[in-house]
Design a protein around this nucleic acid. Structure first.
Length: 854
RNA sequence: GCGGACGUGGCGAAACGGUAGACGCAGCAGACUUAAAAUCUGCUUCCCGACAGGGAGUGCGGGUUCGAUUCCCGCCGUCCGCACCA
């Protein structure tokens, strides 16, 4: 009984692929291209099995498309800037560049051991000046096009990482990496004008028909388009005019107050000579942005004592408040409150004793008896109490008010977006330097292109908190490029999402002296199939879409959407364990005693927690090296593909990987010890075969058709099941007629081998070789099903009586409906139930079912 | 609160509106072994039954249909995203 020697085989075939540059992608406009990309990893240390699921899927797609004749680009690189490197430097005295390079070396080795078909000649790491110099140039181009700008603003400050976070990086009020409660700080920051494309980023989602619906919805919500109106309210003392944004201009006659954000310019102006208001605003800032803080924070307002004049009725006045719940960043930073038809406004009005004027009457309601209680009426209805709007629908009233406002100059219809500009400044060392210089005389001066790249200094000190670039003795001190007087460099670095927003373009011509060669990008882009985690649904995936538009505007290329197809894979989960102290334990630290109790190494009780995504922090990880050492890369790959649908989470179990390993050996035995002698490759199959062998051939060709379809539709678990079905059938082969069985078995084994090629490439190469082929399987074409053989000539038809299955009929394919009906009605199981009566109805679905209604 | 996804054996899961549970894991029985591992064979949704067969069954309650895991309506539960967005 021979065992498959994966160690020898995997090393051998990896060597063969490397020597032959099998997976090198060559620019060839004559051939159809296919660009497969998995989201590139951050080099955090070592890979565990959870990391490689999406690379396994990407590799399957890449190898499959290659076999189908596409010119495939399948590159890999490293998202190499980021805080963990810097934190390691602070903790362990190792330079971030060294730490990063070591991790890359480790992880590259791990990926290579998995046998992924990458074009390693295109490998990139974003921390190299050869990479980041190009994004410094992009930034200068963005500046020139007013796509980048600097402004002072309230930002999200992570007190643990000592840096600013983008809105997208704040999850439930906490930093996405540290989990620390985010604070508000007023800082001068660089922003990218993503809002210039709000409308296009939103409307183009519709065309991304190979993206998951859920990701498109998340982006749609994130961009958050709201149609409404800007309305100007003059103050009664004539000092200024307050502009508000509303989505309900139809309820304008129900207004009973104006509320300004604490950061509204007019609030701040009033606070300058109103200490009580200044104190109120300071208090608002003290309340965090966390979920708890918002939930529990009372809706509070400060009455300014000023009134505003109703824009549609000069006689009406409403009081102006400063209120803690009004955001400066959305709309105009001011609202009008209509308590009758907005719950929050109602709560505010009740609290401060403001009038509640209903202006939308629910259908079939008597206006005389309609009153607002504790619940605002937010549904549709007929406008009343509203002058010229009375009797209109909500929709009509919105239009009528818009027209009136525009005619009188008191406002206009407009669209507000939730999306805000992307703050890209980070007060950290390990990132791409922002290429500008601050000069006392000239202001902000871009670094001249000839001086790029602005390199990170290597001699930095991490002993003190804060940004080492800022503390560096010499680096930031430069002459102003304009006036040559002493000036200082910008010491902030880019958000690392800057690097990942265009790396897919760099892969198209990874060694080019420019960011990317236009011709290469025009050929390879867009990415045909992108694969990664759903956690980037709004971050990376939205920024990349923005970058394509911005780069197009700057003349780099002409393409809006970077990723034509997107697949978001599920996570790999594993049981978690904790001891009585709540400390996490590695799976290998946990044992089961004879009574079935879980114990740690010192025989103390252990609690099994829920299944969670594999993560170092919870210690529920299975090392990739251990698995590859024990079972080989192919076994791990098969398991990652077979047990769950790709989009769903997969539970990693020891028994599961063992099952995959058993199958690997079964496959190897099938080709190395066939039950009948196999004819040489290419041998003809006898035209006339015993029925069992003819059926086996049909199974073979049906499997080709089904697996091809499954792979096209990303149903990898089903594809594996189909292949296993075929190999099960091949194992049941009747060896009594070797002359007929041999060719059929060869066809079946070759089919299994070829279908498995993209999933278990080393084993498949070894089987292919064992089956007598000199060429590599990686260079063989994808099998094509014989359409005639892939269809059954006999079909099993189910027979139902009153909706219940009572029998089955084996009949020739496409038998006439009348014959099928006749055969069904003659069945004893059917006649018994009919009791001699004529059926009321008979439905015949060709080749499927007969449904008899008694 | 808003939006979305999901709910099928002991477990992971299959099933163009057409024979529910393919494929695998675990389990049970057996074969081969001095024995174990490995491997092979059979069984394995639940209930009644020795078999044949019958009944129930896809979270719950309705509906459409000859026929519903699938479509529609209403609940319940789990997970995810957003959340003071005017």
């Amino acid at each position: 009984m021979s065992r498959y020697n994966f160690r020898e085989s995997e090393a051998k075939w990896q060597q063969r692929w490397r020597d032959g540059a099998t997976f090198a992608a060559r620019h060839d406009p004559a051939r159809p291209k296919y660009y497969v990309l998995e989201m590139f990893p951050y080099p955090s240390g070592k890979l565990h099995v959870g990391h490689v699921r999406n690379y396994t899927m990407g590799d399957l797609v890449a190898r499959y498309r290659r076999a189908c004749g596409y010119n495939v680009l399948h590159p890999m690189g490293w998202d190499a800037f980021g805080l963990p490197a810097e934190n390691a430097a602070i903790a362990g005295g190792i330079h971030p560049a060294v730490w990063t390079a070591e991790n890359i070396a480790t992880m590259r080795g791990q990926l290579q051991r998995m046998g992924f078909a990458y074009d390693w000649a295109r490998e990139i790491a974003t921390c190299h000046p050869a990479y980041y110099r190009h994004e410094q140039k992009m930034f200068l181009d963005f500046l020139a096009k007013d796509l980048a700008y600097r402004k002072e603003s309230w930002v999200n400050w992570d007190p643990v990482d000592h840096t600013v976070l983008a809105n997208e990086q704040v999850i439930e009020g906490r930093g996405w990496r540290t989990g620390a409660l985010v604070e508000k700080r007023l800082l001068s920051q660089w922003f990218l004008r993503i809002t210039r494309y709000s409308d296009d980023l939103l409307s183009a989602l519709e065309k991304l028909d190979r993206w998951p619906e859920r990701v498109r919805l998340m982006q749609e919500h994130w961009i958050g388009r709201s149609e409404g109106a800007r309305v100007r309210w003059p103050l009664s003392d004539g000092r200024t005019t307050i502009e508000v944004f509303t989505t309900r201009p139809d309820t304008l006659y129900g207004a009973s107050f104006i509320a300004l954000s604490p950061h509204h310019p007019f609030s701040e102006k009033l606070a300058a000579d109103n200490p009580a208001l200044a104190e109120f605003i300071a208090e608002c800032d003290r309340i965090g942005t966390s979920e708890e803080a918002i939930e529990t924070a009372e809706k509070r307002g400060f009455r300014t004592g000023i009134d505003a004049v109703h824009p549609l009725d000069k006689e009406r006045r409403v009081p102006v408040y400063v209120a803690n719940f009004v955001l400066m960043e959305y709309g105009t930073g001011a609202i009008f409150g209509c308590p009758g038809h907005d719950q929050r406004d109602l709560d505010f009005a009740r609290k401060y004793g403001l009038p509640v004027i209903p202006v939308v009457l629910p259908p079939k309601t008597d206006p005389a008896s309609f009153a607002i209680g504790d619940t605002a009426y937010v549904e549709d209805g007929t406008i009343f109490n509203s002058s010229f709007l009375n009797g209109m629908s909500v929709t009509d009233a919105k239009r009528a008010v818009g027209e009136r406002l525009e005619a009188s100059g008191a406002g206009e219809r407009t669209i507000a977006y939730r999306l805000r500009d992307w703050g890209v400044s980070r007060q950290r060392y390990w990132g791409c330097p922002i290429p500008v210089i601050h000069c006392a005389d000239c202001g902000i001066v871009p670094v001249p292109e000839a001086d790029l790249p602005v390199r990170l200094p290597e001699d930095v000190d991490f002993a003190a908190p804060g940004n080492p670039l800022d503390r560096h003795p010499t680096w930031k001190h430069v002459a102003c490029p304009n006036c040559r007087k002493p000036a200082v460099r910008e010491t902030d670095t880019f958000d690392t999402f800057f690097e990942s927003s265009w790396y897919f373009l760099r892969f198209c011509s990874a060694r080019a002296p420019v960011a990317f060669e236009r011709a290469a990008a025009d050929y390879w882009m867009p990415v045909d199939q992108y694969i990664g985690g759903v956690e980037h649904a709004v971050l990376h995936l939205l920024y990349s879409r923005f970058f394509m538009r911005a780069l197009s505007e700057c003349g780099y290329l002409r393409l809006d959407e970077p990723f034509a197809g997107l697949f978001t894979q599920g996570m790999v989960c594993h049981q978690t364990y904790q001891n009585a102290e709540g400390e996490w334990l590695f799976p290998e630290e946990v044992q089961t005693d004879p009574a079935g109790r879980l114990l740690d190494a010192d025989s103390r009780p252990v609690v099994a927690g829920r299944l969670e995504k594999m993560s170092k922090s919870k210690k529920n990880v299975v090392g990739l090296d251990t698995i590859v050492d024990t079972y080989g890369a192919d076994t791990a790959r098969l398991y990652l593909l077979s047990d769950s649908p790709p989009e769903r989470d997969l539970e990693w179990t020891d028994t599961g990987i063992e099952g995959a390993w058993r199958y690997v050996n079964r496959l190897w035995r099938m080709v190395s010890e066939p039950p009948v002698p196999l004819p040489p490759p290419g041998a003809a199959i006898p035209a006339s075969l015993p029925p069992a062998l003819a059926a086996l051939r049909r199974t073979t060709h049906k499997t080709i058709a089904a697996v091809t379809d499954d792979i096209d539709k990303f149903r990898f678990n089903r594809a594996v099941a189909r292949i296993r079905e075929l190999s099960n059938a091949l194992e049941d082969l009747d060896p009594s007629d070797p002359a007929a069985a041999g060719p059929v078995l060869r066809e079946g084994l070759e089919t299994v081998t070829r279908l498995l090629g993209p999933m278990m490439p080393h084993l498949a190469e070894e089987m292919w070789h064992e089956l007598g082929h000199a060429e590599m399987l990686a260079d063989a074409a994808w099998p094509v099903a014989d359409a005639a053989l892939a269809r059954d000539e006999q079909v099993t038809i189910a027979v139902q009586v009153n909706g219940r299955l009572r029998a089955t009929l084996d009949l020739p394919r496409d038998a006439a409906a009348s014959e099928v009906e006749e055969a069904a009605l003659a069945l004893p199981q059917v006649t018994r139930l009919l009791e001699g009566k004529v059926p009321r109805k008979v439905v015949v679905v060709p080749n499927r079912i007969v449904s008899v209604v008694a």
